[in-house]
Each structure stands twice: as C-alpha cells, then as structure tokens.
Simulated scan of single mutants.
Amino acid sequence: MAIISGLNTPPIRRLKRTWERVDQRSLAQFAACETAVDSSKSFARYRPPCVPLIRTSIDIQPFIQDGSPDALPGGLVNSRKHQKAAEVVNDIKRWQAQPFNLQVVPQIQNYIEEPLNRFKETKASSERFWELSLQREPREREDVKMARLLTESGFI
C-alpha cells in the first residue's frame, strides 16, 4: 500500500512522459496492486482471510453501529446487528490469541527505514519531491505541449 500511495503522489503522477516509458507489463502489475489495495468496501480486497488487519476490522464497527437500527419494527431487538458486531470482536480476539513468530531481518528493516529517516519532516519532504519532479520533467508551455501531442498522435 505504501508503494502504491507513493507512486500516486502528485510529484510522481505528474511525470506523464516518464509514465509513458514504463512498459505495459509493469503498468499491468501496478494496476493489479492498485486494485488489491482499493479502499472501496472497507478495503475488502485488501483483507485476506489469513492475515489479521485489525485497523480494517475496527473501521467496520461504525458501519455496523450506524448502518443498522438497534430495534426492528414492533420493538424487536435487531439481533443481526449485534451478531455482526460480535463476529468482528471475536475475530479480533482470535487473531490476538494467535502467536505470530515474526523475526526481524535487519537487512530488510534497514533497507526500508534508511530512506524513510531521510524524510522525517513531511512539508519539507513534500516540497523537495515536487522540486525533484519539476527537475525531471519541467512544465511544458501550452503551445509546446499541444505541438508535442499533435505530433505524437500523428496529426502533424
């Protein structure tokens, strides 16, 4: 998700000519990854049944609470609502009871953390990335852009 988010930031997304040079196979893989982490339906595609994603489970609770009435017509208790809420809580409790024997791999941890540590201040980093983006692909004047697009499309 972090990679998809990073590649979809404005400084990267604006690099049209760079994106055009990415081969179709890589673009297809990127699209598949975007689909996998799509946020619709409370990240339904991102929640594999074997990996506990507590955050998405917690995010479901307000939908259960706010999306269904406590009582049904006739004053009956909406037991389905309470059953669904209990299922989510039970899932979380079951995941928390499972030991996960994860081991730190220092080389991988360092590979991920070192670049992140260089960009701790968000605003400064954001501005720096925008500057780098403009250096890689300066903005085109509108007339130059139009001429390029017409040439690329075969009109000129």
Rank of each mutant, 00 (worst) to 15 (best):
F100T: 14
P62H: 10
K145H: 11
E127N: 07
Q61K: 08
E142A: 10
V105E: 10
E140P: 01
S40R: 14
K41I: 09
S42E: 10
K81P: 00
Q61E: 10
E20C: 06
G6A: 06
C50R: 15
H82P: 04
S125Y: 03
A147I: 14
V144S: 00
S68L: 15
Q24P: 11
I60L: 10
R17T: 08
S5R: 15
C50W: 14
A147D: 11
G74P: 04
F119V: 01
P115T: 02
G67R: 01
A32S: 06
P48Y: 08
V105Q: 13
E140F: 14
F119R: 02
Q98C: 02
T122K: 03
P49F: 10
D70N: 13
E131I: 15
R141S: 07
E114L: 13
D23H: 07
I3Q: 07
I156N: 07
E142R: 13
M146T: 12
I64W: 00
S57I: 11
R13K: 12
I92L: 06
F119N: 00
E87G: 05
T18Q: 07
A85R: 15
P10Y: 07
Q29K: 14
F30S: 04
N117G: 14
S126F: 14
P10F: 09
W95R: 14
V89K: 12
A2C: 11
N110S: 11
R148V: 05
K84G: 09
P73M: 05
F43C: 11
V77C: 07
V105F: 03
G75I: 01
M146E: 06
E87M: 13
V144L: 06
L149G: 00
P48A: 03
R45T: 09
R25C: 08
E152G: 04
A85W: 13
R13A: 08
P49I: 04
L116W: 00
E114S: 03
D70M: 03
G67T: 02
Q107W: 00
T151Y: 12
E20Y: 11
I12Q: 00
G154S: 05
E142K: 15
Q98M: 10
L27C: 10
L53F: 11
A28R: 12
N110Y: 03
A36V: 08
E113P: 01
L53P: 00
F119S: 00
V105Y: 03
K123C: 05
A71H: 15
I156S: 05
M146D: 02
W19I: 09
C33P: 01
A44S: 04
I112Y: 01
I58G: 04
I54L: 07
E137P: 09
K81Q: 02
V37K: 02
D70L: 05
F100S: 10
S126R: 15
A32Q: 07
A86L: 14
H82S: 09
T35P: 01
Q61T: 14
N101A: 06
G74Q: 06
T151G: 04
F43V: 13
D23F: 13
R47F: 04
S57C: 12
N101G: 06
T18K: 08
A71D: 08
W130D: 08
Q98Y: 05
G74A: 03
V144N: 01
R47T: 06
S40G: 12
R21I: 04
K84V: 15
P69V: 03
F100M: 08
Q96V: 07
L53I: 15
L150I: 14
G6C: 08
P138R: 01
R13F: 11
Q29Y: 12
V89L: 07
C33T: 04
K81T: 02
